[in-house]
Computed example of a mutant assay.
Amino acid sequence: MDTTTWKTNHTRWSDFILTGFFSQSKHPALLCVVIFVTFLMALSENALLILLIYSDARLHTPMYFFISQLSLMDMAYISVTVPKMLRNQITSENKISAPECGMQMFLYVTLAGSEFFLLATMAYDRYAAICHPLRYPVLMNYKVCLLLVAGCWFLGSVDGFIFTPVTMTFPFCRSREIHHFFCEVPAVLKLSCSDTSFYEIFMYLCCVLMLLIPVTVILVSYYIILLTIYRMNSAEGQKKAFATCFSHMTVVILFYGAATYTYMLPSSYHSPEKDMMVSVFYTILTPVLNPLIYSLRNKDVMGAVKKMLNVGSDFQETIK
């Protein structure tokens, strides 16, 4: 084996170094505590929302089934990146092996892709519920809901299986420092010493397609929904329909806005610092915000919370 081949293979499979953003903070210990608390909040909020949805019969509807899947994705989403980042900060060891990096990349891309399509599915569900209420039980029966969710997970995994192997097979001859807090595809590609321009164009086109299809479904669904709401005679019905749609559109704007910046804007708009801040927003903050957006103004969810609290208090009284 010649020296060049050995170096290429060596740099391809040796450890990477995640510089993260702790090194840029004046108070890394405090930042570590804040992120840890945020991580626990995200897990607790989403787990509680899933528990409420599956324990309260009033929430056994397609809309809440999809919300429970979104919470599941958010729990997995934040668990893919944050524990490793916190562990590295605590142990002062910022290394991540190539297999770990590949696995983190695959899970992250899969979950992000799945969430793209799930948000589109949720928009279609609201369209069916508001625009075709009489046919809704048939259009969105249990089997259809399962197939739609399975399709979201499958399409997300296709994304992961496409991008991860290709990205990780590029030779990395430059510095092994990834200027990020996890193995995101664009950040890892910057380390490659080979020409990645064709692959970047391919990735850009795939991302356009991944965003264009769900966004088209969402925009068409909500255009028809808004027309239907406008024609409603019941003010209470208008208010309820609009509140449900507003929550979903808030989540859509937060998630798709950050994804558009990361994967679709030209490199001239990017810098390691900006990329990390945007990634913090949709990787760490979004899983915290989503359950709050769907529950705080939702009477059904708040009713389920009160019911659970009443059951808990009754149980304590029984023990006494």
Rank of each mutant, 00 (worst) to 15 (best):
K7M: 13
M264G: 00
L265F: 12
A241F: 06
Q89L: 03
W6N: 08
L107N: 08
A304Q: 05
Y256K: 05
L52F: 07
I50N: 04
A235Q: 14
L189K: 03
I96W: 06
C152P: 04
Q89M: 12
I78Q: 01
C131H: 01
F16D: 03
A98D: 04
V301C: 05
L212Y: 13
L43I: 11
L70F: 13
V288D: 03
Y64F: 15
F22M: 13
L111P: 00
L205Q: 08
D15I: 00
L211Y: 06
N46Y: 07
S279I: 04
R297N: 15
I319D: 04
M277H: 12
M105E: 08
Y263K: 02
R58N: 15
L52C: 03
K240L: 15
P133W: 10
P133L: 06
F21Y: 12
A112S: 14
L309A: 15
V251P: 00
I162T: 08
Y108W: 10
C101D: 04
M302G: 02
M203E: 07
H60D: 12
F172A: 02
H270W: 10
Y294D: 05
Y54G: 01
A29T: 10
T5W: 13
V158F: 13
S313D: 10
L43R: 03
L155P: 00
T38M: 15
H179C: 11
L309S: 07
S71V: 02
V278E: 10
Y222R: 09
S97Y: 04
C131K: 05
G237L: 05
G156T: 08
V208F: 12
I213C: 05
M1D: 06
Q69V: 08
V188E: 02
